[in-house]
Design a protein around this nucleic acid. Sequence first.
RNA 1: CGGGGCAUAGCGUAGUCUGGUUAGCGCGCUCGGUUUGGGACCGAGAGGUCGCAGGUUCGAAUCCUGCUGCCCCGACCA
Length: 586
Amino acid sequence: MKTIKIGGKINLKQPEVMRYSKLFGKTKHEAPSDANSKNAELLTKGGFIDKLSSGIYSFLPLGIRSLKKINEIIREEMNAIGGQEILMPALHPVEIWEQTGRNKTMDEILYRTKAGEKEFVFGPSHEETVTPLAKRQIQSYKDMPMVVYQLQTKFRNEPRAKSGLLRGREFGMKDMYSFHSSEKDLDRYYKKVIEAYLNVYSRCEMDAYVLQASGGAFTDKYSHEFSIKTDAGEDTMILCKNCKFAQNLEVAEGKYDNPSSDEEEKELTKVQVERGKTVKANAEAHNCDNWRILKSVVYMIEGAGPVGILIRGDFNVNENKVEKYFQKRVRPATSEELKKYGLVEGFISPVGEDKKQIESISFVADHSIAKMKNFVTGANKLGIDLVNVNIGRDFEAEDFADFVEVKEGFKCPQCGGPLTEEKAVESGNIFKLGTKFSNDFDLKFTDKDGKQKPVIMGCYGIGNTRLLGTIVEASNDEKGIIWPKSVAPYHVHLIQLGNNDEVNTMAEKLYELMRKDNIEVLFDERDARAGEKFKDADLIGLPLRIVVSKRTLEKDSVEWKERKEGNAKEVKIDDVIENIKKFINE
RNA sequence: CGGGGCAUAGCGUAGUCUGGUUAGCGCGCUCGGUUUGGGACCGAGAGGUCGCAGGUUCGAAUCCUGCUGCCCCGACCA
């Protein structure tokens, strides 16, 4: 470590561990057996992170360097839209959580602790701290808009932590909060945040989509998710190839054709059949398409009885939409429950001779059956089906609503283009909070007209540790990680091959030159075999590998290999530094 | 929280069913030597309260009971 005196001040220069032999966190041949996702496997093998407990990780030097880079990108983008960095406490007195009611509603995920009689919550989010804080700072419309953010550790007792950094119990998050004097101003700022978020992701070389989200704990209208396409994702995105409109499957809407809508209503007929319970078996028994089957799916509504959802046979019911419609938790009815209500599994229908049989259950229909004619459905009796059933004539639905689960083959509700399904990881989420928290904490301001009004709030989160995991998940090959330049822990992996004075001297010299020019370099100076060093370099995945060996020195060159490229090339030693600088800034 | 599985050295694992020498192997680590452009080889070595607690037994990694942790499948989320 060098200490440099500048104008009487002592500037402590950080000693940087850049020599691989000294690095805390070496590569491993085998990942622990509990690393069950690509990011956990590669980050653990590469020596970036270390698991302490389920969903709880240490960041080793390589890992923290990448995380810091992500954080710096986030900071720059948030600062650019007027965000001011602060740091709020992780320990929250329980009272503020009681004040918003979330002490109860978020009970399952809250970590708690007590000191004597005083109860605390480990912050899972910071609306409860930022709102009282803002109260002491914001009094007038002139104080707004005001935007603060922090990079904090969040604590959430996830029912099931998994997938490495993708879902932790202790995880990093950038959370930003904006305060406005009008809805209009919030709307204006909200759009700016979307742009800033997209900048963050593109600077991390990630392909992010803005999705309309289900809204979660707050409100169903004002929420967007930022999702990154990767097979490891737990969310399903519905994407329009045409206009890029993206939706979360949970709330996705789509258009479809109604193949039988032009038909004449035919005479209702009763048919005796022997068939299986599925739609497919039903269609085969009647020699028709799946769409002609009228499907009845029975759900148990929390605190109420069973409800049958009527939908086209080739479509599935989206449970989230059912929950939204009833504003209650729902679950599929069990076979026992169906029996209890006198319903014959596989032959359930809203039509039946025995009206008593179905009076204990009400039927609500998906729009998909509204215009359809001549359905095939069961008769609530084993082995008896009804053909040419028509809505309005043979049965009525209590209501029509959208319950359909969008799938490939549906058309974009915006432009009519074809929709596709993609797996994605949710990486960010933004909400218009409105006055929910302002009201809870009585956060008001004096407007131009001299009247007291509640402050209008927005909140904006990016899971920075999750983003790190997502980047690895999205950018790797069979050999290891492929870091985007912007978030790689180092830019250059310098390798010296063979324990030979001439080679060692040149490698050391290059290493010093790079450091002098502030090129971030990891120097693998171990007296190890080539294969071992190459394997490690591939696993760690730095963007550029420079090899110095006897062979290259004979041509006054080094070997230049980019992690993304398959082939290596030779670069003259005299040109290396300049080329590296160019490469980094490309 | 419901269902299933696992827990043996830093990592990966055999042994458990059918109890019985000093708990075995690979990687990694240490020392010596040979090697040196895609995880080399030879020799010597260090490293284990067999997850924890209790029980059965002359004797427990192994059988029984309880607990804890981890993983997978479901309901939640950045």
